[in-house]
Every structure is written in structure tokens, then in C-alpha cells.
Write a protein that binds this DNA or RNA. Structure first.
Lengths: 250, 250
DNA sequence: GAACCCGCTTCACATAGATCAAGGTCGGCG
DNA sequence: CGCCGACCTTGATCTATGTGAAGCGGGTTC
């Protein structure tokens, strides 16, 4: 099976075998980290670009009162800091949520690859723009959707994202994060997330136990959450027939 | 005075006079739009790239219940849809908030410029990455900050962004948007935004009348809002001495 | 200059979600 | 093998913000 990063980026551009080989060749097998370890801190200027090869991590900021807001899940295939070189210092931190394996790529190689291959250049742009699109959708969710829809929406997104890189077993994914983590991402309280999750379970929409999330009926959950995967800009007809099609026909 | 787009992008890269001329030369003077007009709709694949030359616009999504979430302010110098070509269809809409003037750039020219000039390429990346950083900060604000801080934070950000492109008169900016618009951006209600704005006025932090926002003491407002401009990744020492410096010394 | 409309303001009341607090369960570690 | 620390669960109560409704002022239209 192909490299996780290749599986992801194929959604963003048509990569030639040469592109794929060059990309994989640039990845240095990096460190393993335990759960809840800092990968990069706010203010850092990391030397290398990090890629998640295995495990879950997140982007976050800490507030003066000690609160934490998670602004993105980083799952296998995701870049942590593709373009720090351009921005200078990190404006947020990155930490693992579960034991993880990270790869690194020297920034010079990133530059070279994207100058050499139009397809890779496009793929890297695509990955960045999708990250941005996800942020926009999270903003909508936090701003305008009630807590239960919000949590359901996060579940839908995670399912699709993991499916898109071949890390799902049907409608079941490994989701070894904590309800507290989920709360920090949703802008809710752990207590309230707990109540919401239990309701989703009681409604037969999901099962979440043994670090495994099972979505019994993805279309029903998507309907409930008002989840439309268009913002993930994936190739292929993931979940064809969801509200996505409804929008297209509008 | 130089072109608004140049003034903005100079924060992202060292542009040579040639770069600047090439960039400005690529901009076609576009249409004028009244307030509250759609520029691009969700699902569109706009032919040209749009730049705001004058006025205020926003990115937004509409929810099934009719609610609107604004996900970004677009002010003069901002790109509306720099990379639709890569993503395919727009996953959100763009609309003017005030009467505006838009420029357009053919996507082929964008490609050419960024292939030809490393500095321009970097500047375009920078603009995109800053948009993303702003989204992250908004997420933090919506998730973890109370309504009054949230509104104050938006004011701080707007002030700095407009200052950075020379559109502020000291600590005063033209802010011809509606309290309802502000509410749609903050994920609040117009009623509640009204209460909060009045409180900020009563506390002597701001004045907002005649479509003009005056920040009496930027450092005090920033302190109140927990605003640190680092995420805007601007050149120069805007507001040096704010909490930003505190973080650096941490 | 009357009629309107839009945005601002205020008030009374409702509620989603926060907060505080107390168990309970389970896996890891001494 | 028993303790301890994370995490989950539940309950009671509080509060920030939403909802619904009404009035007001200024600018625009006819």
C-alpha cells in the first residue's frame, strides 16, 4: 500500500510515480512521541517540516485563564507546519493527543519538490487550502450550531477524513481521544460533551467505546449535523447522496 | 502612494520595483458593487481572481435555518478567491458589506507571476497563510472568549489590519458595517452585540458612531481583549509593547 | 412632507451550556 | 494486589446569551 502522505495528496493532484517517489524520498523517519507531548510550541521556528505518520495530534492555543482551544485535528498524512519558513514564528502550538510517529522533511526539499513538479506544488497548495476550508467550517459550527450538532459534525468530518486516506474500517474509526479533547475542540465543557455524546449514543447514531467510533448510519448522522463534505474538497464520491448532492441540485 | 495590494503584500516579502509593477499590471480594474451584493456564491467556479480595492466584504455561509456565519472580513488589499482553480468549487460565498470596488486578475497571470518571481510567490503564500492564521484566532475567540472580549478582539484586529495598509487615521478607522454584521461574524445575536458595544462605549474603550470606530487606548483594548497581533505576521512594530512583547519574553 | 424602512436600543423572559461537586470505573504502577 | 490518577458519569444550580417584542430616529422614496 502506498505511503500515507501520497494517499492523502492524491486527492489534491494527479501525482506521477516520479512525483510520489520524490515525495516519499524526502521524508525522514522521525521521532516517536508519547501522548500529550509538545511537537512545536507557540513562538518556535521549527527547523524541519513535520508530517504525522501515525497517531493523532492537534493545533492549539492556550488562553490566559489556562483554557485550551484546539483549532485542528492532525491525523496521519497531515502536515504540522508546512510553511513556517514563510510566516516566521509559530502562532500556535502543536501537541500529540495519542502516541504518534512523526516524519520530517527539510524545508529545502519542500521548496525543491514544489519548484520541480507542478503536480506536487499543486498538491501542497491543495493541502493548505483544505486546512483553511476546514477552519472555516469549524467556525460555522462553533458560531451557529448547537452542541449536539457540533459534536456530530466533528465525528462526520473525522470519519470522512480517515476514510479518505484509507484509515477507516467501513464506518468505524479508531478515535483514541478524550472527551476533554473533544470539548477543547468544540469550545464546550467536558461535562457537556459527555452529555451530548450520551445522547448521540442513546439516539442510536453512534457508538464510541474502546477508543473506537462507530457511525451506524453516516447519512443519518450527516443529516443531523448538517454535514456536507464539499468543504473537504476530496476526489471521489465519498458519501454520495448526502446533502452535498442536494446542494449541487439547488 | 503605492497600490493597496502592494502595500499589503510588502508585509509578506521583499518586493522589487519590478515585482510591484508586474503585480499591479496584472490587476484589471473591475466592477463596482453596492452594499450587500453577492460577489461569488457557494458552488461557483469564478473565472477570475478578485481583489478588494475599496470597501468591506466578507466570506460567509448560510445555514439551513437561514442563519449566516461570517468567517472573514475582506478589506482593501485582500484576495477573495486566490486559489479557486486548485479547490474547484467555492465552499462558501463572498458578499460586499458596503459599496465596494473590486479588481480582477486572470488566474494565468497569478500562476505566471508566482512562477516568475520568488518574492511574489512567497507573498501570495504569505497572504494565504495569514488568512489561515486569522481563522485560527477567530476560532479561539469564538470558542473560549466571552462576548465582550470577542467584540473587542475583532475591533483590535480590524484596527491593526487597516493600519497595516495605511487605511487608518491614527487609532480611528472607517467601520461602515452593521451591528448585525458584527453579530454574524462573532456568532452572537445583534441584540447582544448591541449590549456589548454599549458597554465598551460606557467603559471608555471605544467610540463607534458615524460609521467610524475610534479606539481611545489601543493597549487598554488589547489588554481587555487578550489581543496579541503576532498571528497577523506583520512586518514592523505595530503596537509594540502590547502583550506580544510579554509573550516573546516568556 | 408623509410614509417607510432599516438599523439601533431597551425590556422581559427563556434556555443552552457552564460551573461545582461527588461518585464510579478501569488500567497502570509500586 | 492494592492504590492512584485519568477519565467518565451524574446531579444541582447558575449565568451568559438568545428570543420575542416594541419603540425610536434618521435617511430615502414618492
Amino acid at each position: 500500500m502506498s505511503h500515507i502522505l501520497v494517499r492523502k495528496l492524491r486527492h489534491g493532484a494527479e501525482l506521477s510515480p516520479l512525483d510520489e517517489a520524490a515525495l516519499v524520498g524526502a521524508i525522514h523517519d522521525g521521532k516517536r512521541l508519547a501522548a500529550r507531548q509538545t511537537v512545536v510550541s507557540e513562538g518556535d521556528r521549527p527547523r524541519d517540516v513535520h508530517v504525522i505518520l501515525d497517531g493523532f495530534a492537534c493545533r492549539y492555543k492556550i488562553l490566559p485563564d489556562g483554557g485550551r482551544q484546539i483549532m485542528a485535528w492532525l491525523v496521519p498524512g497531515d502536515f504540522c507546519d508546512l510553511h513556517v519558513a514563510i510566516l516566521g514564528a509559530m502562532d500556535h502550538g502543536i501537541a500529540t493527543l495519542t502516541p504518534s510517529r512523526l516524519g520530517t522533511i527539510p524545508p529545502a526539499d519542500v521548496d525543491r519538490l514544489s519548484r520541480t513538479s507542478p503536480a506536487l506544488s499543486r498538491a501542497l497548495w491543495w493541502a493548505t487550502l483544505v486546512d483553511e476550508a476546514i477552519l472555516r467550517e469549524w467556525l460555522v459550527t462553533m458560531g451557529r450550531r448547537p452542541a449536539d450538532r457540533q459534536v456530530a459534525h466533528l465525528f462526520c468530518e473525522l470519519l470522512v477524513r480517515l476514510q479518505s486516506v484509507g484509515l477507516a474500517d467501513g464506518n468505524r474509526i479508531e478515535l483514541p481521544i478524550t472527551q476533554g479533547d473533544l470539548a477543547d475542540a468544540a469550545g464546550l465543557t467536558a461535562v457537556h460533551v459527555n452529555r451530548v455524546v450520551q445522547q448521540l449514543r442513546a439516539d442510536g447514531l453512534i457508538d464510541w467505546s474502546d477508543r473506537t467510533l462507530t457511525v451506524h448510519d453516516p447519512r443519518a448522522l450527516a443529516e443531523f449535523a448538517d454535514f456536507r463534505p464539499n468543504y473537504l474538497h476530496l476526489k471521489g464520491e465519498l458519501w454520495s447522496g448526502t446533502a452535498d448532492a442536494a446542494l449541487a441540485g439547488k
